[in-house]
Amino acid sequence: MLLITCPHCGPRPELEFRWGGEAHVARPADPSALDDRAWSEFLFVRNNPKGLFAERWNHAHGCQRWFNALRDTHSDKFVATYPAGAPRPDIAAEDAR
């Protein structure tokens, strides 16, 4: 089980959290201007890297807040967690190891 550090509550077991998919996927500013390809990108296509991944978590059985995390999907090691709205920390994959 993962040990996840909620930026508001500190380290808690994974059981308290729900995973929310890729982070920083911005809703289109002008949805009616999108063509089918752009909608498809927004709705369905996701980064799926073997390495650093920015993802959303919800502390469902804690403070219930959404936040973001940087995790290495090869080792499952968390490199950083940060509040929703904050920019992705500038950490390269090599430094994270």
């Binding site: 089980m1 994974e14 059981l15 995973w19 799926n48 073997k50 993802e55 999907t73 080792s75 499952d76």
Partner: peptide, 13 residues
């Protein structure tokens, strides 16, 4: 498991 991963292992829960 609930999260994306390539680790070929998951949680015991």
């Amino acid at each position: 498991d609930q999260y994306a991963s390539y680790s070929q292992q998951g949680g015991l829960q």
